[in-house]
Amino acid sequence: MSGFFKSSIGRKVAMALSAFFLMIFLLQHFAINLLSVFSGDIFNEVSHFMGTNWLIQFVMQPVLIFGVVFHFIMGFILEIKNKKAKGVAYAKNNGAANSTWVSRNMIYSGLVILAFILLHFIDFWFPEINTKYIQGDWSGVHEGVEGYRYFHELQEKFVNPARVAAYIVAFVFLALHLLHGFTSAFQSMGATAGRKKTLQNIGKAYSIIIPAGFIIIALYHHFNHIH
């Protein structure tokens, strides 16, 4: 079995498995963000639960970090191997004649997402780690803020238009990444279903609705919370 994951096909399967995991995570993240549009209180409750539950903090969070790091490192490894396998580049290559732009540029859409993830870590994750693990404050409350602090922090983040713009760009590239990635992951797993109309349509819907949703949520908070 260890030999399997060293083979070209095994690496593809590993890539697809990490991608499936990330797509499920994204759906869950979207669902929670969506709550923030309807009720700050419910968003706070759920955020506090997610932020203090040991299963999520000590099991799911490390798994998620591993999943993300594995996915982009594997992406880079495959890209380098594939460049090497081509050797000499063509003087003239008409890629558009037989494949989509998104399928040929997964590494670039991926790099934009990676840059966004770094920003996201600096924005949300590092402060959380600092509050909880370094300062040891697991209370979820903050001076001068009524109730839990999470919703307030979220609103503060979306005041700056430059950050909102960065969000929009990142999620457009995530949509491009998924427009190829969603069905590609099924094909890698050996499921020809990825090539059937139904799954292609589900893939398109997922790839457009979820990123668009994130963008709309960011804009909603931006326009509803200008000081």
Partner: peptide, 16 residues
């Protein structure tokens, strides 16, 4: 793999 061929990324260009 030994011959040094690359990894499929499902672009579908080959089929076309």
């Amino acid at each position: 793999d030994l011959e040094g061929f690359g990894n499929c990324t499902n672009t579908g260009a080959c089929e076309i």
